[in-house]
Every structure is written in structure tokens, then in C-alpha cells.
Design a protein around this nucleic acid. Structure first.
Lengths: 161, 161
DNA sequence: TGATTCCTGTTATAGTATTACATTTGCGCG
DNA sequence: CGCGCAAATGTAATACTATAACAGGAATCA
């Protein structure tokens, strides 16, 4: 998959089907279960390339009778993030579907503060300047969070600050 | 100031006095007010090179009779972060005093998941791979969050995973 | 079929953050 | 001086985010 999906139009229905299929295959390969709730949460997140809060996800589940209490949503989100199918956006306390499930990667995000859309990119932050500082001091990096906030190309066109 | 303070011992009392003095001068220069609550919150954060949650800060304020409701702490923290004297750690929903107040900079953090200490470093993430992706797509980066989670040199020595 | 493990349902509660409005303080200016 | 504005604080109420704890159900495998 090329790089920064999220701010440009594309075959969205196909994009959803494709991702679900990949995740299904990955789950089978890893011997973990993509249960109905988990699958539905993934689909909900795939609908938008937007970050949704856990309670937004929960609201949708409720409408569909798939569970109505917070732990239902949090557990599904936890499963999906543990397996790399969904990423958590720390800056927003929210979640987005991974645009490239199946490959291990250190994700980075471009977050539009106007429309809340999120694009996923790749990072090698741990290899750069921060990585040098870390190795100099003996700090062992296990995970990096890299999130850039700003204005996306679509919103830049539309005047408003 | 050299680089990664936070995991090594140093003249801490002096470090606090120095930072407060710099912040005082900056406030005067910018025509903003370092009120008693704001000053105290800064000092509280300077005590540790640890990230404190807003409610931890609030507890200390309460003990000292400086305000007892959440907005008191949040407003002071907001002032301090707006002015770059304190940074917010998104990963922890918490706050640390800046180790180099007075200079505009894009901070990055090394967060130890065992002892919760935080070291501040510099970043140029917006110039690296993520910056390329951004400029290719027309995304305008305003701010970056770069936080690395792992194990600090002190905790690595002490066996426990 | 029974044991085990993983998943789900539900209640309750903990932790983080903001809105709204009343009051006070600092400060420039007539 | 004292009026008036802007900024800061005090306080109550509430919204949003997340987890603990335990009971029950479903899939898997000996």
C-alpha cells in the first residue's frame, strides 16, 4: 500500500473489504479469534479515516445491539490494538484503523485539527536524533508515539483558520 | 543546557531555582503574570523529573491551601504549557517541567515505563521522514508529539522486566 | 463429557477534563 | 483618586475516558 491515505479519495468500500480480509487472514495465521464484536469495531473504524473515541464506537455498537457497556468496546479495541489492526492516537484519546494491517511497523500520524481526519505514515523516529540520545544515555526504546498536528490539504483550501 | 537530564543526578535545588528564575524573566519579557498559583505549580513539577497528573498537582495545592478545585490546577497548567514552561505528556495524560524554558523548541521525551521518570530531548521529527510525507501531501504541521516509551538506564540495572 | 480457556455481559467506580458563572485582582487612564 | 476593563481565581456541577471485579456462556480439546 502506498503512503498517506486518509486525505485523498479512494475506493473506500474496497478498502474496507480488503482490510477486513487481511485482518481475518492474520487472525487465522496467529490463532486468535476475530469475534463478531471485534470484527464490527474494526469495520466501524474503517468507515472513516477518522479517529473515533471509545464511546463513539460504543454508541454504534449499542445501536446494533452488540453490547452496551464500556468494557465491551474497550476490550475489542484492546484486542485490535494489541494485534496492530488498530492504532491508538494518544493526542486524541481515540482510535483509527490501521491502513496497512499485517505488517509490523512503527506508525506515525498526521492529524488535522479542523476535520479530525488522520493519515497514517511510517516513522523511523527511533533511528533518528531521539534514538541517538537514547543510546547515549542507555535508554532502551520499546515503542514510539509520533503524532503531528496541523491542517490537512482539504481544510487549508477552505479559508477558516 | 546539555541534553538528557532526567535520568542522572545533578544539583537539583539549583536546577529548580535556575528554572524559576528563567521563567520569571521570560514572563516579565512577555508581559504575562507568573501568579502565586502558577509559580507554585511550576515548582511542584520541578521537584521531580517525573510526569505528574493534574490531580496530583491539585492534591499538593490543596495541602497548601492554594486552591482545591480541578480548574485551578488545569488553568495553571494551561498557562504554563501555552508558554512552553511545562510540557504535556500525551501518553501519560500528565505534565513535566521543561528542562530548557525560554527557548522555543520541539520537545521529545523518553518515558520510563517502570519508574515513570521522563527525560526531555530535542527533536526534528517534522524535518524527517514524516515531514516529507507531510509536504508531499500538502499537510501543514503545526506541532509534533514525539514520545518514546521504554526502560531507563537506572531501571535496566534492576533486573525486573 | 468434563475441564480449561477465552470471550462477553453487567454493575460499579476510578481517573481525567471542562463548562459556567460569580467574584476578585491588577492596572491603565480620565 | 476612582472608574472601568481585562485577566485571574473560587466554586459547583457535570462530561468524558477508562478500569476493576465478578458472573455467565461458548469454543476447544483431552
Amino acid at each position: 500500500m502506498p503512503n498517506p491515505i486518509g486525505f485523498s479519495s479512494h475506493d473506500h468500500a474496497g478498502c474496507i473489504r480488503g482490510s477486513v480480509a487481511v485482518v481475518e487472514a492474520e487472525c487465522a495465521a496467529r490463532g486468535v479469534r476475530l469475534t463478531p464484536v471485534r470484527r464490527r469495531v474494526l469495520e466501524i473504524l474503517l468507515q472513516d479515516h477518522r479517529a473515533l473515541g471509545a464511546y463513539e464506537v460504543l454508541d454504534r455498537l449499542r445501536e446494533e445491539g452488540l453490547g452496551s457497556q464500556p468494557p465491551v468496546a474497550y476490550r475489542a479495541l484492546d484486542f485490535l490494538t494489541r494485534n496492530g489492526f488498530v492504532h491508538r492516537i494518544e493526542r486524541l484519546n481515540a482510535f483509527v484503523a490501521c491502513t496497512d494491517p499485517g505488517h509490523d511497523h512503527a506508525p506515525a500520524f498526521l492529524i488535522c485539527r479542523l476535520c479530525d481526519h488522520v493519515a497514517e505514515a511510517q516513522t523511523d523516529a527511533a533511528a533518528g536524533r531521539l534514538g541517538q540520545t537514547a543510546s547515549q544515555t542507555g535508554f532502551e526504546i520499546e515503542r514510539t508515539v509520533l503524532e503531528a498536528e496541523g491542517v490537512c490539504p482539504n481544510c487549508r483550501g477552505e479559508a477558516s483558520v
